[in-house]
C-alpha cells in the first residue's frame, strides 16, 4: 500500500516537473526572444513525450516479465499517470495557442481548424483524448469491461495524429521529428501479435 502511494506521488512529481521548469524559465526570462513560441513548442513536446512513454509501459511490463501481481500493482499505474499528464500538457499547449496566438478569438480558431490541416489534426487528437481521460478511473474501467481496452486503443491513433501534427509544421529540418516517429513505430511494433507472443512466452 505504501509503495503504491509512493508510485502515485512520484508520478505527480515527475509529471509537473517540466511545467515547473517552464514556469521558472518564464519567471527568470529564460524563454528566449519569442517566449510564446518556446512555451508552445515545449508543452507540445512534453505532451508527445508523455504519450510515447505511456505507450512504452505495456511492452516494458511484458518484456521485464515481472510477476503479475507486482507489475499490475506498481507498473501498470504509470500508463494512467503518463496518459493524464500527456493530456495536461496538451491542454496547456492548446490554451497557450488559443490565448496568445488567437487572442481568445474563436473565429480565428475555426478558421485555423478549417484551413490548416495541421491545426485540425492536432485539435482532433486533443478531442480524442477527452473520452480516454473521462474513463481513466477504476469505475469506468469496470463498467466498460472489455470495451474499455478497445476504447483506450484510440491512443494509437491519437499518437499518430500528434506525429502528423508535428510533421506538418516543420519547414525543413526533420531531424528531431524522426526520433519521435521512430519511437512510436518501435513501440507500435509490440502491438503486433507476432511480437507480443514472442516476448510474453515464458523461458
Amino acid at each position: 500500500m505504501a509503495l503504491k502511494t509512493l508510485t502515485r506521488w512520484l508520478g505527480h512529481v515527475l509529471g509537473v516537473l517540466p511545467a515547473l521548469y517552464l514556469v521558472a524559465l518564464s519567471a527568470f526570462g529564460g524563454l528566449g526572444a519569442n517566449p510564446i513560441e518556446t512555451l508552445t513548442h515545449q508543452t507540445g513536446r512534453w505532451a508527445l513525450t508523455a504519450l510515447l512513454l505511456s505507450l512504452a509501459v505495456t511492452p516494458a511490463v511484458r518484456w521485464l516479465r515481472f510477476d503479475r501481481k507486482w507489475h499490475v500493482k506498481y507498473l501498470m499505474p504509470w500508463r494512467k499517470i503518463l496518459g493524464l499528464y500527456a493530456f495536461f500538457y496538451a491542454v496547456l499547449h492548446f490554451l497557450i495557442y488559443l490565448i496568445f496566438d488567437l487572442s481568445f478569438d474563436f473565429h480565428f480558431l475555426w478558421a485555423d481548424v478549417k484551413d490548416r490541416p495541421y491545426i485540425a489534426v492536432g485539435f482532433i487528437a486533443l478531442c480524442l483524448l477527452l473520452p480516454l481521460v473521462a474513463t481513466s478511473n477504476k469505475k469506468a474501467q469496470r463498467a466498460l469491461g472489455k470495451r474499455w481496452i478497445a476504447l483506450h486503443r484510440l491512443v494509437y491513433l491519437i499518437d499518430a495524429l500528434v506525429l502528423v501534427h508535428f510533421f506538418w509544421l516543420i519547414r525543413a529540418d526533420y531531424s528531431s521529428f524522426w526520433w519521435y516517429a521512430g519511437a512510436y513505430l518501435f513501440l507500435m511494433m509490440f502491438r503486433l501479435k507476432v511480437v507480443t507472443t514472442l516476448f510474453s512466452r515464458p523461458l
Binding site: N34, I36, F100, S103, D115, P117, L169
Partner: peptide, 19 residues
C-alpha cells in the same frame, strides 16, 4: 495569401505577447 500550412494574416512582433 496564407502559407498553405499557416495563416499570414497576423504576426507576433518579437517582444509582444499577442499577435
Amino acid at each position: 495569401v496564407n502559407h498553405p500550412r499557416w495563416s499570414q494574416a497576423r504576426e507576433r512582433r518579437i517582444g509582444e505577447l499577442f499577435k
